[in-house]
């Protein structure tokens, strides 16, 4: 049984003109445990919405999302929050670190809503991403590359089964992008987490053995050029 199984998933939004705008229409998608899959999608292809649905941040209009055997669409919002806190790590393009918190506190905060704080593990993760000397720095005191490394550590803090990465290198230069991507992939591998990454960056996509075209998976997305 796959770790993640999405079936007949639909999500639409109301446009300002009152019309319904379908954003996600996925008939079938699966991700095995510890697998690393990249979804290729241009802007507007419903990447973030799909990841938000999988993370339980958004509730689908219809369809099912099974994560680790649990049917997410049947869960209440607090139950989805709990599932997200314990089984999912989320890496954003803009890092989404809390500015008032230190590097270590950002990682600890990622743990506090899940299984609970494990200071030792948080420090080990930060050491793993090369930030053992920046534990008490504020995010704004770090470079963008370092900030994304904090976000990687935070995503892995709860020992998740699945890490979702939404354009994680979008705000980084080439060198930092390569380094961040390697860290994400190694971190997931070392912690036994599956990785579902969405990106439009060919260089990033080229790093993955399995790349799927979001336009093919998501019928609501406009057909785009396929990246092989």
């Amino acid at each position: 049984m796959p770790l993640l199984h999405v079936s007949q998933l639909k999500k639409s939004f109301l446009a300002p003109d009152g019309a319904t705008h379908a954003v996600v229409d996925v008939s079938e998608f699966a991700l095995e445990e510890k697998a690393q899959v990249a979804l290729a999608g241009e802007s507007g292809s419903g990447k973030t919405t799909l990841l938000n649905l999988i993370a339980g941040i958004l509730k689908p209009d219809s369809g099912t999302i099974r994560l680790g055997g649990e049917e997410m669409s049947a869960l209440s919002e607090p139950q989805r929050d709990r599932l997200r806190a314990t089984k999912i790590g989320y890496i954003f393009q803009t890092f989404n670190l809390l500015q008032g918190y230190t590097v270590l506190e950002n990682v600890l905060l990622g743990m506090s809503f899940g299984a609970g704080e494990d200071r030792e593990f948080a420090m080990a993760l930060l050491k793993r991403v090369g930030l053992e000397n920046r534990l008490h720095h504020q995010p704004r005191q770090l470079s963008t590359g370092q900030q994304q490394r904090v976000a990687v550590a935070r995503a892995l803090a709860n020992r998740p089964k699945l890490v979702l990465a939404d354009e994680p290198t979008g705000n980084l230069d080439h060198a930092n992008a390569r380094e961040a991507l390697a860290l994400i992939r190694e971190g997931c591998r070392e912690n036994g987490a599956a990785l579902l990454l969405v990106s439009h960056d060919r260089e990033v996509l080229a790093q993955f053995e399995t790349v799927q075209d979001l336009a093919r998976i998501n019928r609501a997305a406009a057909p785009k050029e396929v990246v092989s």
């Binding site: 993370a55 941040i57 919002e77 607090p78 929050d81 709990r82 997200r84 806190a85 314990t86 989320y90 954003f92 989404n96 670190l97 809390l98 500015q99 008032g100 905060l109 990622g110 809503f113 899940g114 935070r154 709860n158």
Partner: peptide, 16 residues
Amino acid sequence: RREIAILRALGARRGT
């Protein structure tokens, strides 16, 4: 609002 959204994305409940 963004801070709250981040906290919620990390698993914080609305009640929290």
